[in-house]
Design a protein around this nucleic acid. Sequence first.
DNA 1: AAGCATGGCAACCGCCGACGT
DNA 2: AACGTCGGCGGTTGCCATGCT
Length: 317
Amino acid sequence: MGRTPCCDKKGLKKGPWTPEEDELLVNYIKKNGGHGSWRSLPKLAGLLRCGKSCRLRWTNYLRPDIKRGPFTVEEEKLVIQLHGILGNRWAAIASQLPGRTDNEIKNLWNTHLKKRLLCMGVDPQTHEPFTSHCPALEAPAFPSTRHMTQWESARLEAEARLSRESSLFNPSFGKSDADFFLRIWNSKVGESFRKFNATDKNTCQSPISQGSSSTKCGSVSAITMEIVPSSAGPSTTASNQNEDAECKSSKSYIEDLMAVSDSSSSNDLELEDSSDTALQLLLDFPINNDMSFLEGNIDKYETCTAMLAENSYICSL
DNA sequence: AAGCATGGCAACCGCCGACGT
DNA sequence: AACGTCGGCGGTTGCCATGCT
């Protein structure tokens, strides 16, 4: 029963690839117009490797469309945003960054972005602010975390909203919210969203808001966090004064979301309407919030690390 | 200059879903 | 239906380069 055994691992080479091996693999794939069966490839190409090793080498290193060089700020932002939605689904995240491999993104996350979020007082796994697990990163030292809690509430609401919308948008689509998000992300709707996010977020002129009956721009702007650098110290007077207004904004944001939900569920939705709604959801989606706070705090990383060391705080991850 | 610590990254390992027999 | 492989994926490891003492 079943197929014949994959490959006899005895005598197969492991470890780093030599230039000669790379050449053999590349030449074989070029010559045959593709890799074909990975299982039979090593033998046909004259390699003493298992098919799995060949596949990994090709997809992570030798593929001609691999983008070399450091990640741009935009790419890093995108990785953080997508990780917030998709979690550790590196392949799914990589599919949104042309030329980048899942391994590369995974390494980027584990070596850079995770630390950066930790420094920001954000749990890199849940993207939620830390609570009592890490005293050094609690609200007093990081006033921004209070804002982020409010922000997170709105985000969760929007995720729930997305989930509900998914069944209206495409009833046959029964996968996760994350998958639904990717579908929108890759659609023209998502394209519009990204363009708006990149160019028009400051002017509040979303392509759809201009034509729709009710704009969510106001609430989006209102809820946008003001990230205070950690060096600003414990909660400032200004942030206290703004707290009420921010809470109200959060409330109105959620009310807006619910209003959209009610209207959409009570009407007969045509595809175009759903697309508009989907775009609006993307515009409302809290990842739309400017991630520049990360840039602004990159420089704070070393300071933060020093502070943590100085206070002998140990964060349990 | 030597030894040690740290960070970055390529590669391996093990698991899982899809699919062939 | 059961078994086994393939291909893909995420987690982890180990090597190497660099910086620090």
